[in-house]
Design a protein around this nucleic acid. Structure first.
Lengths: 223, 223
DNA sequence: TCGCCAGGCTTACAGCGTAAGCTTACACCG
DNA sequence: CGGTGTAAGCTTACGCTGTAAGCCTGGCGA
């Protein structure tokens, strides 16, 4: 009977369990509040015990970034749909990345501030280059294209996540900021704010706008 | 004579002096090593004395970001050159921003992770909107255009700063990474690396490539 | 049965931002 | 001239961080 309690209520740690707990914790409290002590607590364990399964905190951050990348839809052309093509596939990839990063608001900053060479990252990049290569881009062009699209995804998502107001607040916020941007000093900024106040411009940043500029441009490069 | 030593060898602190010292220190040791104690030391002062001149560390970070933005060339059409136009002006702005951020490698991350409403930032944004408005863009279009261009600037610069190898090392690095990206598993990534090794692709990310896609696209939108 | 050792725990250290309160020197005023 | 208010420095202390070093213990292989 004693041998029955192989898993004594706590399954024991593992790198996998540590990383998934870290991902959950980062989603709940933000990556800036993810500390080794707190992560240990979430796992019912002392902070130092984590170091038996990960090298250090950076190792954890690399790990959870790769988990997030693994959630992004890899670009693939749907062979059952004759109308599908590289452009649609790359758009789906971009939208999927954008959506995924919005679900993990701490991720874009980490993505941009470290080299990501986890298995999910490698697979993601490989599929992207493959999609562009199959479309007819040279290696160099595929490299540049991939880079341009990803800059847009990361830059846009970060700016959006960072903006501290909700769309429905824009008009109110613009109104209250107006005294700080007098027309005499900042005529165009003032004018823009006025447009938002008057409901003539919603002030919404549009992910597709920039993405279309890039994808349409790439299509022209291809011809 | 005693009244002569108004400035007793050390000029005394001021918000300006604190911010400029912080900027210098950030450039020298990186923003992650910029601590209140270290900044105090650089100014010959205890850490807590800084709080008489700035509200807290975030206040300092906001301040040095605005100092950096102040170094970026504001977009202006040269009236003495009849061939000049909004597109050239916006390109100059983008290149200037890119160059400036490369001189302050810690800055892009801060730029993207906080709301910047310092005087230099406001002026910078106002001039940008103004340039686009004068070119004929609506407020909404100018907003989208500005956003698309800045996403590229920040995203590209961050990726470049973050990449831990020098261009002349690319071939060597690609060679040593090759075993980790076997052709069977990552065919396209492997192929790309092979191109770099063989000198058929320099692997250099090209700031102008993505910028041109966006600017050319905007020009077409304008017509 | 013995010894090994993986996987936990404990303690400790240097560094962080900053709250709270103390000290000093100078400006001003009656 | 004496007295007072205040700006600008200093000191101490608190709770937090990542992690180095070493200890303990239960289970497994020989």
């Amino acid at each position: 009977m004693a041998s029955d309690k192989r898993k004594p209520a706590r399954p024991g740690l593992s790198q996998d369990r540590v990383l998934h707990a870290a991902l959950t914790l980062a989603d709940e409290v933000g990556v800036e509040s993810l500390s080794m002590r707190r992560l240990g607590e979430a796992l019912g364990v002392q902070a130092m015990s984590l170091y038996k399964h990960v090298a250090n905190k950076d190792d954890i951050l690399d790990g959870i970034v790769d988990l997030v990348i693994g959630q992004i839809a890899v670009p693939e052309i749907n062979r059952n749909n004759p109308g599908d093509n590289w452009k649609r596939a790359m758009r789906r990839r971009a939208v999927s990345a954008h959506d995924t990063l919005l679900r993990h608001p701490w991720a874009p900053m980490l993505l941009l501030s470290r080299v990501n060479v986890g298995p999910a990252s490698l697979r993601y990049v490989d599929a992207t280059i493959g999609c562009l290569r199959n479309a007819g881009f040279s290696y160099a062009m595929a490299d540049h294209a991939w880079n341009a699209i990803d800059n847009h995804i990361y830059g846009f998502t970060l700016q959006k996540l960072n903006f501290p107001f909700q769309p429905e607040e824009y008009a109110t916020v613009a109104q209250s900021f107006l005294p700080q941007i007098p027309a005499a000093q900042y005529p165009h900024l003032n004018g823009m704010a006025q447009q938002v106040i008057d409901g003539k411009h919603d002030g919404l940043a549009d992910f597709d706008f920039g993405l279309n500029l890039i994808l349409d441009g790439l299509e022209r490069v291809l011809r």
